[in-house]
Simulated assay, not measured.
Amino acid sequence: MCRIPGSEIVKAKASSQDSPPEKSALSHAEYEENLRLLQIELVKLQKHFINCDDRILVIFEGRDASGKDGTIKRIVEHLSPRETRVVALGKPSDRDRGSWYFRRYAAELPAAGEFTLFNRSWYNRAGVEHVMGFCTDAELEEFMSSVPEFEGMLVRSGIRLIKYYLDITKAEQKRRIEDRRRDPLKQWKVSPIDEQAVELWKKYSKARNEMFARTSAVVPWNVVRGDDKRVARLSVIKDLLSRLHYADKDTELIRQNPEIVFPYAEEHLQSGAIAK
């Protein structure tokens, strides 16, 4: 990673916010103004890592309707499409199922100067595949054992890997899925698996908790409290910018609330900071 002398990661503190799921703590005007400024910072970041040949990989996971699409869209909106790639793989083919599990994901890893964002990733196995019975217990166990080794290889090769889990409450997920059904522009987001998401809430929670506990050692998970979409999107961008080195960083702008984005710890499950 190309570093800037004197640069540092900013750990910010701000007041917490509690707002109803359907209302944001930010007005539309405040959100748009802050988003534009943060997107300018993202452009600065991209210029820096292209010059340094950095390889950046960001993984987004979370329940159905947790806000992955919207967050990724705002991150990449004004970045160079030549050096920015969003990867959202579909169902595995017969060939994929008969190959090394990580093969099709490895093919999408960033090259020098590239910024790659995974909208769901190899963690499908720990979530949807596990809960819906699309993989065996043996396949799940092999995955859990292999992930730390696989991600360790990526990090040692020079890839900057960051993992976010967008966390929402059961009530908010239900509201968003209902909204998808009613909105003709969101019909493409509705799937049979979505229909069972709320019904299987506890099973997904159990699978998520196991994933956190067993796959955080090498590359820690960062949990994002996502009921307020506007706050969550801005907070993810701020956190991402704070973790990466680039010239002319606006450290005041990227200060954020650590109660919105925070590293996974079992105590957060007990306290309710992570939705149960």
Rank of each mutant, 00 (worst) to 15 (best):
S7V: 03
Y246Q: 10
I260Y: 06
V261G: 11
A25M: 05
D227R: 06
I9E: 14
E32R: 11
E41Y: 09
R36T: 11
V43L: 13
E33W: 01
H245A: 14
E267G: 10
L37E: 14
A111W: 05
N51Q: 13
E41S: 10
R3T: 14
E259P: 00
W100F: 13
R82K: 15
W100T: 04
A106G: 01
S146W: 04
G133S: 06
R181W: 08
R103S: 08
P92C: 02
V87S: 00
R255A: 14
V231T: 09
E199V: 01
R95F: 00
A29F: 07
L244E: 07
T251N: 09
I4T: 13
R225H: 06
S191M: 05
E77V: 01
E259A: 12
I4Y: 11
K44I: 12
G152V: 13
V58P: 09
F102I: 06
K23E: 12
V218N: 07
C2W: 11
T215E: 00
L26G: 00
I75K: 00
G90C: 00
K73D: 07
V231I: 11
V155Y: 11
R120E: 06
Y31A: 03
I168E: 03
K203Q: 11
L109Q: 02
N209H: 14
V128D: 05
Y164E: 11
V43K: 09
N51I: 02
L26I: 00
E199Y: 04
E22N: 13
S205Q: 10
S24D: 04
V236L: 08
I9C: 12
S99V: 00
R208G: 05
R36H: 10
A12M: 02
S216N: 15
E33P: 04
I260S: 09
A14C: 11
V223Y: 11
V43A: 12
R160Y: 14
V10R: 10
R97C: 05
H28S: 12
R104S: 05
L42I: 10
F118Q: 01
R225I: 05
K91L: 07
E210T: 12
P192T: 05
P220G: 02
V223P: 03
F60A: 09
E33I: 02
I254A: 06
K23I: 07
V128K: 03
Q187C: 05
E41D: 07
I168P: 05
L200Q: 08
A265E: 15
S16L: 06
W201N: 07
G98V: 04
L185A: 03
D18H: 11
P21D: 12
D179C: 02
E77T: 00
G6D: 04
M132H: 09
P258D: 09
I159R: 01
K68T: 01
F118H: 06
P258K: 01
A247E: 15
W188Y: 14
S242K: 09
H130M: 01
A207H: 08
V198W: 08
F262L: 01
E139R: 00
K202H: 06
R160S: 13
A213M: 13
G113Y: 01
V190A: 07
E178M: 13
V43D: 08
A217S: 13
A213S: 13
P110H: 03
W188S: 08
G226A: 15
